[in-house]
């Protein structure tokens, strides 16, 4: 079964900006897909549609559940989104509260919640920080923490919006490893094409709200002419 199936998906912001135009795609279960494109091309908008946070027109199915009012609850359990700005994701006084927020809403038992928090922190390499306040963390640490908040819920589909922006080498590496060893479906957006080379098999190129090309990493990230015409550059790792 496909994790995501979209047909002629459109979305306009309330102020009239047409952020997505006729998006049609399908993403299989377990695939790791990168959405790339210049600033303002609709990547973040697309990600937030995946769990019904924004509702557009057209067909959208998540693991076979058509997106509608009745299914939204189920879909939100299946899809975890890590937003671009970690300050929107961390809203509790301490990391422990933030990470336990999801599992507690899933009505897990207290002992299990503690284990899940522990595990999520270990996965992103923030072990021992559970009692820190999020406003005392650096940007990179907050980014990792917001990934942990979603990881602790074990969603079937994880959507990451610019997971490596503003991160130093070590933190970026941690995220790359985390994506590589994760067996769930992952959809991420990024301007860090080198990271995509290491983590994804498939790339979808957006521009001005439409899909320009959908193909393998080989087909898109190695095609200098295509990238340049969409305001992108060949990944550093492929430049001679």
């Amino acid at each position: 079964m496909e994790a995501v199936k979209a047909e002629n998906l459109n979305y306009s912001y309330p102020d009239g900006t047409r952020a997505l135009r006729d998006i049609s795609l399908s993403i299989g279960d377990g695939e790791k897909v990168a959405v790339v494109g210049p600033n303002g091309s609709g990547k973040s908008t697309f990600l937030t549609m995946l769990n019904g946070v924004r509702k557009g027109t057209g067909l959208l199915e998540i693991f076979g559940h058509p997106m509608n009012r009745e299914n939204v609850k189920v879909i939100k359990q299946l899809v975890g989104i890590v937003f671009q700005n970690p300050d929107d994701q961390l809203f509790c006084p301490t990391l422990f509260e933030d990470i336990s927020f999801g599992p507690l809403n899933q009505r897990k038992a207290p002992e299990e919640v503690r284990t899940l928090v522990e595990l999520a922190l270990r996965e992103v390499g923030l072990i021992g920080m559970q009692h820190r306040s999020s406003f005392h963390l650096s940007f990179g640490e907050r980014k990792l923490a917001s990934i942990a908040t979603v990881a602790a819920m074990y969603p079937s589909l994880i959507a990451l919006d610019e997971p490596t922006s503003n991160l130093d080498m070590a933190h970026r590496r941690k995220i790359i490893h985390w994506v590589q060893k994760n067996s769930k479906t992952i959809i991420l957006t990024s301007h860090d094409l080198d990271m995509i080379l290491e983590t994804c098999q498939r790339v979808i190129l957006f521009n001005k709200g439409s899909i320009v090309k959908d193909g393998t990493v080989q087909e898109i990230l190695h095609d200098e002419a295509l990238l340049t015409s969409n305001d992108l550059e060949l990944p550093l790792g492929l430049q001679k």
Binding site: G80, N105, M153
Partner: peptide
């Protein structure tokens, strides 16, 4: 609004 969306995404009812 964004925070509310983040909370909702994590199962807040």
């Amino acid at each position: 609004e964004r925070i509310y969306l983040a909370m909702e995404s994590r199962g807040f009812r």
